[in-house]
Amino acid sequence: MQFQIGDMVVRKSYQRDILFRIISIEQSAKGEPIAVLHGDEVRLIADAHLADLEIVREAERLERKQEEESKMKESLEMLRHDYKLLREKHEYRATNQYNNEQQYFHMPGRVLHLDGDSTYLKKCLTLYEKIGVPVYGIHCHEKKMASVIEELLDEYRPDLLVITGHDAYSKHKGNINNINAYRHSKDFIETVQKARKKIPHLDQLVIFAGACQSHFESLIKAGANFASSPSRVNIHALDPVYIVAKLSFTPFMDRINVWEVLRNTLTREKGLGGIETRGLLRIGMPYKTTN
């Protein structure tokens, strides 16, 4: 079978569990053709012999997409429900128990999202827009993130920083605690360290970092508030958005229980974790309309 860059495929040896797209076809050390794969819905990078691949027909691809959209819709509804409750709670405080009729305005936390995958970045930006989170999106290869992060922080001055893309743990490269056994965890860690050196306070700049199977413990130690992946499982492409949205719309006077953040995600505590963090939403008044 002939394979081309952009083909949607599954791996037969993994029981066709994940849908991938072929990014490139390279030669192995033995001269055999190897396909480099990016997960279509999960932030996983992998490689496979062409003989292990099977092209996915359009009907199956659409069926998988509908299943993913159903999960996403459920998470989005939970997020909207949480935001509605937070808004009502905030209105009660701001209006002195509804005794003050003065109108006010919201200032949710601003996001800088660095993503190693341009396709995932577009999906994330679409969801940010749908939810109403102010965001700047930057496509940047994982290995280049550390070299540009300080300049980007100066330029955009975000409240939240997302550092994500692709990652993977390879058993044949070392045990689970060996950082060299991970494809891009080291790059994410270095980027977090540089960002945290510039802005040390955990509530002044809230950081999410990692992708599929990333070295969770090292990312938290480097200074991330939230990271993947505690159980070294795959995370969904949109999981960072659900975490960030919860933080962005929680009032800055409130501290967020970690489970309250994780329960809105698609992967939950096996793929994501973090530390207690203050919300970032601020309100102001009076609200003035422009004619």
Rank of each mutant, 00 (worst) to 15 (best):
M1Q: 10
M1W: 04
Q4V: 11
Q4E: 15
I5Y: 03
I5A: 06
M8D: 05
M8W: 07
M8I: 07
V9E: 00
R11H: 09
D17T: 06
D17E: 07
S24R: 06
S24I: 00
E26A: 08
I34W: 04
A35L: 03
G39K: 01
G39M: 03
I45E: 06
D47A: 09
D47I: 03
A48L: 01
A51I: 06
L53P: 01
E54S: 11
I55H: 00
A59N: 13
E60F: 04
L62Q: 15
E63F: 14
Q66T: 12
Q66N: 12
E67V: 10
E69R: 13
E69W: 06
K71Q: 14
K71Y: 13
E77C: 13
H81S: 15
Y83K: 13
L85F: 08
L86G: 06
K89A: 10
E91A: 11
Y92C: 09
N96V: 06
N99A: 12
N100G: 08
Y104T: 10
Y104D: 09
F105N: 09
H106Y: 11
R110G: 02
L114C: 06
D115T: 04
D115M: 05
S118A: 15
T119G: 14
L121P: 00
K123Q: 11
L125F: 11
T126R: 10
T126A: 11
I131G: 04
P134E: 01
V135W: 02
I138N: 02
I138V: 15
H139I: 06
H141R: 13
K143V: 09
A146I: 01
S147I: 08
V148F: 09
L152M: 14
E155F: 07
Y156K: 11
T164F: 02
A168M: 10
G174M: 08
G174I: 08
N180Y: 03
I189Q: 02
T191Y: 03
A195E: 03
K197V: 10
K197I: 11
I199N: 03
Q204D: 15
L205T: 01
V206E: 01
A209V: 04
G210T: 02
S214L: 02
F216N: 00
S218T: 08
S218D: 12
K221Q: 14
G223E: 02
A224C: 08
A224R: 01
F226G: 00
S228F: 00
S231Y: 11
V233E: 06
D239R: 04
P240G: 03
P240R: 00
K246Q: 14
L247Y: 02
S248R: 07
S248T: 10
T250M: 10
M253K: 08
D254Y: 07
R255A: 07
R263F: 06
N264F: 07
R268K: 14
L272M: 12
L272D: 02
G274H: 02
E276R: 14
G279W: 00
R282M: 10
I283Q: 12
G284R: 05
K288E: 14
